[in-house]
Amino acid sequence: MSISVKTFASTAEAATALSGDRAARFMGGGTLIMRAVNEGDQSFNTILLANDPALTEIQAQGDRLIIGSRVTMAQILASRDLEFLHPVARAVGGPAIRNMATVGGNLFAEHPYGDLTAALLVLDCQVTLAGGQTSTLPDLLRDRTREPRVLVASVSIVRPQSGIFKFRKVSRVKPKGVSLMTIAAWIPQSGGRVSGARVAYSSMGPTPMRVQAVEQALEGATLDETGVGNALSAATSGIEPPTDAIASSWYRREVAPVHLKRTLLGG
């Protein structure tokens, strides 16, 4: 199956081509798609490109930010509006990968990838598809390999007040490498108590995910050693972490509370 590449001026045309062909894939930055091409992946034979400049734009709309799906990690790092996402974007790959890797591709990246997606999950992310329909991020992740495939045009996130958003990527490779566990958290407080927390992991399951058990355990808790105790106990409840070259499922389970604690309490 030799590969064919089709380039479209409009996102909508590309989306139509994508939904109509099981063997087609939309390409963002290509960091994962091209590896598959190089290694002879037989599951697709058509690459779709879209030149629509809107896909590479970052816009502020009130307290929300709209990020085009072909915005790269390097573009995030160059954006003052997205300063809160800089530690996240910097955690992805090395500099060359960041110049290529896109936001849209990160939503579809398979384990152990998806660091940015974990962050988006706690930033109240709304996904806009090429046809204009919207979806929640958990819904998109659940269906991301279903046919017909959808084309993501942009994501919209809230801009957090300072101190609310926390992010930690744990890797065993120095200075950086593939994630053992990535944790993103959105921890608003009122009256010294946590209220409406959102916590997400990447590299702890088949897709990045919200961790409801931890979120519930944090509700009303104080942000200190004893306050977060229940949340730490719930760190992996209902989760079956994967075993891969970086860590076993058992290891991930063992260290999850430690890293969750560091994320929540700093240090």
Binding site: V5, M27, G30, T31, M34, R35, N38, E39, I47, L49, A74, G93, G94, P95, A96, I97, N99, M100
Partner: peptide, 27 residues
Amino acid sequence: CGQGTCGACTVLIDGEAHLSCLTLAET
């Protein structure tokens, strides 16, 4: 490697470092 992990294929495209093994040539 042909998979982005080694960096031996790094070139600059408009001054930015890119991995040529993961760059679709026609782009």
